[in-house]
Design a protein around this nucleic acid. Structure first.
Length: 113
DNA sequence: CGGCTGACTCTGG
DNA sequence: TCCAGAGCCAGCC
């Protein structure tokens, strides 16, 4: 089936974000801004809020979504960020000692400024 | 219907 | 490199 990311009428804005995030290949990471751009007509914040409202048991690799700085935001009492880091390492994504990811290498669209 | 919160991003110091 | 403030929209109480 053809995936029409931004041309797919979703019941909710969040579902549309999930569709894009779900297209992120393993071992790669995308920024909120990138996802927002793919979704179209939305800001990076909307993506973050959508993921924050992520339903339980969803197949959305939210862990592959990070901020523009290539870093993990301190979400969920700080426990979620730790979990995300572990998941990324398990995916093969190398994290810097400071917790930074090289978007020019692991970035899905390699949006290195 | 009104108000608050939130996994962001940018610019300046 | 780190800190602070402002702009933004959607969802929930």
């Amino acid at each position: 089936m053809k995936q029409t990311p931004n041309a797919n009428p979703s019941p909710s804005y969040r579902h549309r974000v999930y569709a894009v995030v779900r297209q992120i290949p393993p071992g790669k990471v995308a920024t909120y801004g990138q996802v927002a751009g793919l979704v179209g007509g939305c800001t990076a914040r909307m993506v973050g809020y959508a993921l924050s409202s992520l339903p339980d048991g969803s197949d959305v690799p939210w862990q592959r979504v990070i901020n523009s700085q290539g870093r993990i935001s301190p979400h969920g009492y700080g426990l979620g960020s730790l979990l995300q880091r572990q998941l990324l390492l398990a995916e093969g994504v190398a994290l810097d000692l400071t917790g930074r990811i090289d978007l020019s290498i692991f970035g899905w669209l390699a949006a290195a400024r």
